[in-house]
């Protein structure tokens, strides 16, 4: 994959930037040019507005992958899930910060910024969202960070946390 091909999607892959139809208010991720559900199909042209997902969601279904996709060899077995975001759209991504056996349908998760894979030793490193179980207040690695002001994007690139 060329740098440009990945780079042009970074607003979506890093920050979960989606879109919302201003006619019927349905939210989409990734962003769409026309609204598929709005009955006034073509009236949505030019009326799709940017919409930021919060990154909060729930596991709808999942698999534990043993035969990995290319570039994911070092991560097996890994949990892959379809997550329904609280705003409505569904996304596919890995579930991390949890042993695969503990991933369940209905697990509440939030998006987290991670390294996805690298293209060989000298190739491009891809970053993007993965999902982690939502911590209860006062527990887990994010404890104590709740008082910090929330960054404007849902996910802020933080190289110290950029691990699979």
């Amino acid at each position: 994959m060329t740098i440009a091909r990945f780079w042009r999607e970074t607003p979506r892959r890093y920050n979960l930037g989606g879109s919302r139809c201003s006619v019927c208010t349905t939210v989409y991720f990734p962003p769409r040019t026309v609204c598929p559900t709005c009955t006034a199909h073509r009236q949505s042209l030019g009326k799709m507005e940017p919409f930021q997902l919060s990154g909060e969601g729930e596991v709808v279904t999942f698999s534990i992958v043993h035969e990995p996709a290319e570039g994911f060899e070092m991560q097996v077995p890994y949990a892959l899930a379809i997550v329904k975001a609280v705003e409505g759209p569904l996304l596919t991504g890995q579930v991390v910060n949890v042993v695969p056996e503990e991933v369940k349908i209905g697990l509440k998760v939030h998006a987290t910024f991670r390294k996805l894979r690298e293209e060989g030793a000298a190739g491009v490193i891809h970053y993007g969202y993965k999902f982690a179980p939502k911590e209860e207040a006062g527990t887990g690695p994010r404890a104590g960070r709740e008082a910090e002001p929330a960054p404007t994007p849902a996910l802020s690139p933080d190289p110290s946390r950029a691990r699979a």
Binding site: E9, T61, A69, F72, L80, A81, T92, L116, H126
Partner: peptide, 24 residues
């Protein structure tokens, strides 16, 4: 490719998620 495979999905893992949901 852009919204499934990039995030670690494979064709069998996608069908596996259909299976999990059907079992559930």
């Amino acid at each position: 490719t852009e919204w499934e495979l990039v995030f670690g999905a494979t064709l069998p893992s996608l069908w596996a998620m259909v299976a999990r949901k059907h079992m559930h």
